Simulated assay, not measured.
Amino acid sequence: MTAKYSTGSDDEDARTWTRDKRFVLYRWSDKPFVGHRHRYETVEHQLVVAYIHDVGVDIRHEVRSDDTEKFADEWTAVEYIEVRDYGARHVRKPEARWLN
């Protein structure tokens, strides 16, 4: 029996990483503040997957903003997950409170 449609499981677009690799999976921006003085401040976000060969994977939520002093002008991780042989560790920095 054959499938009626493609399930998209073909590996023709897949890539294998065999050395260190940093990949920006998604980028977006928003205005997370509701107060009248800060509501126009824009925060840029990016979701980064960093593969460290023979070590593991880091998944990082990084932010930056030129409009507000709550975040740095350069990309900085506010939340990340480290995946290693011994397990996974989720770290959330205090700056992440501004994003909920």
Results as ranks from 00 to 15, higher is better:
residue 23 F to K: 12
residue 23 F to N: 08
residue 24 V to F: 03
residue 24 V to L: 02
residue 24 V to H: 01
residue 24 V to P: 05
residue 25 L to R: 10
residue 25 L to Q: 11
residue 26 Y to T: 09
residue 26 Y to P: 00
residue 26 Y to I: 03
residue 26 Y to C: 08
residue 26 Y to G: 02
residue 27 R to V: 11
residue 27 R to Y: 06
residue 28 W to C: 13
residue 28 W to K: 14
residue 29 S to R: 04
residue 29 S to F: 10
residue 29 S to Q: 09
residue 30 D to R: 11
residue 30 D to S: 12
residue 31 K to P: 04
residue 31 K to R: 09
residue 32 P to D: 14
residue 33 F to R: 03
residue 33 F to E: 04
residue 33 F to V: 05
residue 34 V to H: 01
residue 34 V to C: 00
residue 35 G to A: 05
residue 35 G to F: 03
residue 35 G to S: 05
residue 35 G to D: 06
residue 35 G to I: 01
residue 35 G to Q: 05
residue 35 G to N: 04
residue 35 G to H: 01
residue 36 H to K: 02
residue 38 H to T: 09
residue 38 H to M: 01
residue 38 H to N: 05
residue 38 H to G: 00
residue 38 H to P: 00
residue 38 H to E: 10
residue 39 R to E: 05
residue 39 R to F: 03
residue 40 Y to E: 10
residue 40 Y to G: 11
residue 40 Y to T: 09
residue 40 Y to N: 14
residue 40 Y to R: 14
residue 40 Y to Q: 11
residue 41 E to V: 00
residue 41 E to M: 03
residue 41 E to A: 06
residue 41 E to F: 02
residue 41 E to D: 07
residue 42 T to E: 14
residue 42 T to G: 06
residue 42 T to W: 07
residue 42 T to D: 03
residue 43 V to R: 09
residue 43 V to L: 08
residue 43 V to D: 06
residue 44 E to T: 08
residue 44 E to M: 10
residue 44 E to K: 12
residue 44 E to Q: 12
residue 44 E to F: 13
residue 45 H to C: 08
residue 45 H to D: 09
residue 46 Q to I: 11
residue 47 L to K: 07
residue 47 L to C: 11
residue 47 L to R: 08
residue 47 L to T: 02
residue 48 V to C: 03
residue 48 V to S: 02
residue 48 V to K: 01
residue 48 V to F: 04
residue 48 V to I: 11
residue 49 V to L: 15
residue 49 V to W: 06
residue 49 V to S: 13
residue 49 V to P: 00
residue 49 V to G: 09
residue 49 V to A: 13
residue 50 A to C: 01
residue 51 Y to D: 00
residue 51 Y to P: 00
residue 51 Y to C: 00
residue 52 I to T: 15
residue 53 H to P: 01
residue 53 H to A: 15
residue 54 D to A: 15
residue 54 D to E: 15
residue 55 V to S: 11
residue 55 V to Y: 12
residue 55 V to R: 14
residue 55 V to L: 15
residue 56 G to Q: 06
residue 57 V to G: 00
residue 59 I to Y: 11
residue 59 I to A: 08
residue 59 I to F: 11
residue 59 I to S: 05
residue 60 R to S: 13
residue 61 H to E: 14
residue 61 H to Q: 11
residue 62 E to Q: 15
residue 62 E to L: 13
residue 63 V to I: 12
residue 63 V to L: 07
residue 63 V to F: 12
residue 64 R to K: 14
residue 64 R to V: 05
residue 64 R to S: 03
residue 64 R to A: 05
residue 65 S to L: 07
residue 65 S to H: 09
residue 65 S to Q: 07
residue 65 S to D: 08
residue 66 D to G: 06
residue 66 D to C: 07
residue 66 D to A: 07
residue 67 D to I: 02
residue 67 D to L: 04
residue 67 D to F: 09
residue 67 D to V: 02
residue 67 D to E: 12
residue 67 D to H: 13
residue 68 T to S: 12
residue 68 T to W: 05
residue 69 E to Y: 01
residue 69 E to R: 06
residue 69 E to C: 05
residue 69 E to H: 10
residue 70 K to S: 02
residue 70 K to N: 00
residue 70 K to L: 04
residue 70 K to Y: 02
residue 71 F to G: 02
residue 71 F to A: 03
